[in-house]
Design a protein around this nucleic acid. Structure first.
Lengths: 282, 282
DNA sequence: CAAGCCAAGGAATAAATTATTCCGTCTCTG
DNA sequence: CAGAGACGGAATAATTTATTCCTTGGCTTG
């Protein structure tokens, strides 16, 4: 988690003086990077030592360390490379402009999606997936395709995976799950009735529920044990969920890669599966 | 241009002392960020003042400014996905490194894919899709998911689309196609037997064949009337086709957006389809 | 309600880091 | 071979950072 977010979160419980310092840093990270402790203190009308102490309270050994962390955090704000315009696509956009907007918005949703999930929450999801006896993937419509993609990958790792695009079959499958199993439910809106009901049933049966939804509060997320988030264009009319799907894929890809990294014999599994398929190539 | 690149470029024309300093910074930007001028000087056996002078010669007002620039450069490193960024993921990579590699390689394959297709060839594909009586989508494995995703989108535009994940069904469907129809065939290797046979049959029946394959020469591409290309990591053992799929999706997304742009009533169609689905939301 | 405790935060000061000045050395050039 | 000038280190000045110490005011407790 970035320092800026951390500071922002702690703002509430800080002493008034520290709060002022924290707020200034969160609001003006750029300026802060160029200010000395004394200058920063003067800027907000506090003493120089308070600034040093503030750094230390946050767990940094020096003010310079804090600066380094802020600089790092700022860069993680994943700004879209110059020239990549993000915005809706217009009727009279040229081919080149469309390319840029398309890639720009795809990149943006990927970046924001990885930034929206803490390493901790991802870690909890990994743990659940790793320890699961069976993994059921739920999702309808476009989310079903992502679920299937993820299921293919998990199968390549030798995991016990269930997914069917038919929500009745999904529901029937979930009714066989129990403690020790995991339900991985995808829905950008978090409001798809079928997926929601499936998650509720799983929850009732003691199955760990991982929900992958958009950021805003939604029923699916509320039901879940572990909440992961995807971020996409709100304006979906023209993009028709392109970025929502990209965000979901980014998240499942990330989980897959982390699983591979943790599983010593993963490469062997993947290699074997590719070898097996290769006999079907001309 | 990043400071590190700038330093590296100037290395040649620098005085020996400055060259040593510059080399150290280029080689160890991370350490440099945590060293004082004196410590850095000691590290390479030079005087503290040389380090300050070095910063000034580069045009920075202070050593701190140089540090800031290095920190900035380091973070932007991944925007220029040269070398390690799209390298394979290693067992001891940190979470952050994995994020960067993942997004870096995704971005790279998207950019290269749009660059690999001329506007002209894309135009021909659009024309074929627009004029098609029926559109059949072929693909197996991961490509089948992309085909299905594309088919959902085309259906939202009211097009006449056929796709089934079972290749026997695909083949049977193709046997009903003729002149005026289009086969859209996806295969990164261009060598999947089923897809290839399907394309051959379509060709024989006078159906226009659009092939989406990797760049290298391949049987599927040779059969096609219109050749589109996707670019992905060659090293796929660990990524398990993540980038190949992303490249295919980028291409189909692009086609979809261009179709929407050209079809006056597209938004209405898309809107209606979303409205229809919304009754299934909680 | 008073004594005592403690957190908050600033002033003063010590320590460190950074910037500048100055000077010797070496090289190139006329 | 003298002079100009680049190079770079030592010394020192200036600035910045870290620590110590002290006051204040709120809160607890007897």
């Amino acid at each position: 988690m970035s320092v800026l977010k951390k500071i922002e979160a702690k703002l509430e419980v800080m002493a008034p003086g520290d709060r002022e310092i924290g707020r200034y840093i969160v609001d003006n990270p750029d300026q802060m990077l160029r200010l000395s402790t004394a200058a920063l203190a003067a800027e907000i009308g506090r003493s120089q030592s308070s600034v040093v102490k503030f750094s230390q309270k946050l767990g940094y050994s020096s003010y310079q360390e804090l600066k380094l962390a802020v600089s790092e955090a700022k860069s993680q704000e994943w700004h879209v490379p110059a020239g990549m315009i993000h915005g809706s696509i217009e009727v009279d956009d040229s081919y080149l402009v469309i390319l840029r907007k398309l890639i720009g918005s795809k990149l943006l949703s990927m970046q924001q999606t990885v930034a929206a999930n803490t390493e901790q929450e991802i870690g909890k999801a990994l743990e659940a997936l790793n320890g699961a006896c069976r993994i059921h993937l739920a999702g309808v419509g476009a989310s079903s395709l992502v679920a299937r993609d993820f299921s293919y990958k998990l199968m390549k790792l030798g995991r016990n995976v269930l997914h069917d695009s038919d929500s009745h079959v999904q529901m029937a499958n979930v009714s066989t799950l129990g403690r020790g199993d995991v339900l991985f439910a995808l829905s950008y809106s978090g409001a798809s009735i079928e997926t929601l009901r499936i998650a509720e049933l799983a929850r009732k049966r003691g199955t760990t529920v991982i929900a992958v939804t958009g950021l805003r509060d939604n029923p699916l997320s509320r039901v879940a044990d572990i909440r992961l988030h995807t971020i996409a264009d709100e304006e979906r009319a023209r993009s028709s969920s392109i970025t929502a799907r990209d965000a979901q894929l980014t998240l499942t890809d990330l989980l897959f890669i982390l699983l591979v990294q943790k599983q010593p014999d993963a490469n062997e599994y993947v290699h074997n599966s590719e070898l097996a398929v290769s006999v079907l190539k001309a």
